[in-house]
């Protein structure tokens, strides 16, 4: 097998990890499964595409993709999610599914209606370079570097800062967190914003290797869900690990069998994980 396939898998896998981190943290934070996650990423991506059309430079446009997606996350948290937070346990999970599914449809519908042929493509550098004897597109390298730094910062934030520790305390035990003076709703707002920012960043890095079209939101959401399930809900490191594994699996199956079969293989990998390890690779076992 061509080692470049593995490399491509790693590049894709990092992207998947970046997309899933926001989703998995939000789920860990008391059962909010955000089915609009991919659409929020695309919202950021299309914002950047429109700004590029309007003559903005690549860097400010990319920054606005992150800003727009962050804002979308924060607006969701402050408005339509409020009634969801009032529920606890399974009721909250179910209500969050229904509400965010609706939000996802709305964002997707609006984007496809208003900007049917809009897509974000960021050209960074040009051509390709040799890395370890493998020919890599410059865009892939930029995308991977940005993603590694971003995920590293998130994991560092969670592990080493006091705010990050407060976030983990809510993931571990919401009542326990309240009892030590942590305000779970403030933590949720923080993570909703962070999750949006990461989704926007995903749109930026993704667009360095393949176009982010106005209709790609649903498939991003599904990919993020698969990665989240495999990695373990609530674990940022798990999302990264699962992203890498699935990215490599995806690349190998696309090269060896054919790209038509890859989504089936990804879903099968997710199903297998649930059978063998219901809490995911790095999920919490109760």
């Amino acid at each position: 097998m061509n080692p470049a396939v593995i490399f491509d898998g790693v590049v894709d896998g990092l992207q998947l990890g970046l997309l899933a981190v926001g989703l998995t943290l939000l789920y860990g934070l008391g059962g909010i499964l955000n089915l609009a996650h991919g659409q929020i990423a695309v919202l950021g991506g299309i914002t950047a595409a429109l700004l590029l059309d309007a003559g903005w430079g690549a860097l400010p446009a990319a920054a606005m993709a992150v800003v727009a997606a962050t804002a979308a996350g924060l607006v969701l948290d402050q408005t339509i999610m409020r009634p969801v937070y009032r529920e606890r346990g399974e009721d909250r999970i179910l209500l969050s599914l229904l509400v965010t599914l609706g939000v996802g449809f709305v964002i997707d519908g609006l984007l496809v209606w208003r900007y049917p042929s809009e897509a974000l493509t960021l050209r960074v550098g040009s051509g390709s370079v040799e890395v370890l004897g493998i020919t890599m597109r410059v865009g892939s390298l930029y995308a991977s570097a940005i993603t590694i730094v971003a995920i590293g910062l998130v994991i560092g934030f969670l592990r080493a800062t006091r705010a990050g520790r407060a976030v983990r305390s809510v993931i571990e035990d919401e009542v326990g967190a309240e009892l030590v003076g942590v305000n779970p709703s403030a933590v949720r707002t923080l993570i909703f914003g962070l999750s949006g920012a990461l989704a926007g960043l995903f749109a930026v890095t993704q667009s360095m290797t393949s176009p982010v079209t106005s209709s790609s939101g649903v498939s991003y959401t599904i990919l993020a869900l698969i990665v989240t399930v495999v990695g373990g809900l609530g674990s940022a490191t798990g999302a990264l690990l699962a992203g890498l594994i699935l990215g490599i699996v995806n690349a190998i199956s696309a090269a060896e069998i054919g790209s038509y079969i890859t989504s089936i293989i990804l879903l099968a990998a997710a199903a297998l994980t649930i059978l063998v390890r219901p809490s995911g690779l790095l999920g919490r076992t109760e």
Partner: peptide
């Protein structure tokens, strides 16, 4: 029920 942070 204590509500400790079990994984920490």
């Amino acid at each position: 029920e204590r509500h400790l942070f079990g994984g920490m």
